[in-house]
């Protein structure tokens, strides 16, 4: 077989497998199987094909083909818009919204994954073209591992300690430990909250983490993830049992209150630990001089 052809095939296949490995359909219920799944696999295939032909085209040498590649790569910027649009439209009919920060984070991740696919395909086709087809079995798994590592990101469990909190009422004010959550008017609702509610304290480990948890977008993401697994007792037009995350304004830690269909405090704490830290809300005060000085 032609040397070019083998390189292109090796690059395309490795890129496509890479996209498949990075495509997860988990508790966040996104992307949905099978339609969005197929869309992303198809786009991943196109991205892999793009990356795979770059090196053989340069080696041929076919510089016109390379300029076309650059043009085609521009198309992948639209993936972010596509994801953002879809998720924002779905947001209107959600009882517990994801929040724009979470949507933006998901959209960026989808875009970034395609660039990783292009890179994987490019590297593997280069390896096959220059060294021989056997070497792809070494380079491809390395690329997969690297992609998965790069896309992993950090979680709330890495930046905060999660502890169980005590729900109680101070008159009509609902509190988790010393953090005020909200005012509850009816005694029947107060009893229900005390009986079935759960309270969690999320304590940031440093000033960066405190600023991250400060962002309402990050709190919405935590609540959305918790609700999408454990369920909530919010209904259309009945928001009185809505889950809330409020800040202890002096110390900066968060208190989360929720009334779940599955009231398992232990699992709630595990779920919160696995919520991704959103790019757009990440606190970076410790990387500035005065931020470090103030954080004593």
């Amino acid at each position: 077989m032609e040397k070019y052809l083998i390189a292109v095939i090796a690059g395309t296949v490795s890129g496509f497998v890479d996209r498949w490995l990075m495509l997860r359909s988990d508790y966040r219920y996104y992307p949905t199987y099978p339609h969005a799944y197929l869309t992303h696999l198809a786009l991943g295939f196109i991205a892999a094909g793009l990356g795979a032909v770059a090196i053989p085209a340069l080696a041929k040498p076919d510089y016109v083909a390379v300029t076309f590649l650059v043009l085609a790569a521009q198309q992948f910027r639209d993936i972010r818009n596509m994801e953002r649009e879809t998720l924002s439209n779905l947001e209107k009919t959600k009882l517990i919204p994801r929040g724009t920060d979470y949507i933006e984070g998901i959209a960026r991740v989808f875009e970034a994954r395609n660039y990783l696919v292009i890179l994987t395909a490019l590297l593997n086709s280069a390896v096959v073209y220059s060294l021989g087809w056997q070497y792809v079995f070494l380079s491809a798994p390395l690329c997969f591992l690297l992609s998965l590592r790069l896309m992993a990101g950090s979680h709330i469990g890495d930046i905060a300690k999660i502890e169980a909190g005590q729900l109680h009422f101070d008159g009509s004010i609902l509190k988790v430990n010393d953090v005020v959550i909200k005012n509850v008017g009816l005694p029947a609702e107060r009893e229900k909250i005390l009986r079935e509610g759960m309270g969690v304290i999320i304590k940031p480990i440093d000033d960066n983490a405190r600023l991250t948890l400060d962002a309402p977008g990050q709190r919405m993401a935590i609540i959305h993830d918790a609700v999408s697994i454990l369920g909530s007792k919010v209904d259309v037009g009945e928001p009185h049992f809505a889950p809330l995350a409020r800040k202890q304004i002096d110390q900066g830690y968060l208190a989360l209150f929720m009334l779940a269909n599955e009231p398992d405090l232990e699992y709630l704490m595990e779920i919160i630990k696995r919520v991704p830290v959103l790019e757009s809300t990440r606190g970076t005060t410790l990387s500035s001089l005065y931020g470090r000085k103030a954080a004593d």
């Binding site: 009509s172 005694p187 609702e189 037009g237 928001p239 009185h240």
Partner: peptide, 28 residues
């Protein structure tokens, strides 16, 4: 309590207590 519960359900609101004999139904 009964009146405010009904009003809250009908108006899609939440009942709050001012702790001085006043309950109010609020839209959030």
């Amino acid at each position: 309590q009964k009146t405010s519960l009904y009003l809250a359900r009908i108006l899609d609101g939440v009942v709050h207590d001012l702790e001085n004999g006043v309950l109010l139904i609020c839209r959030h």
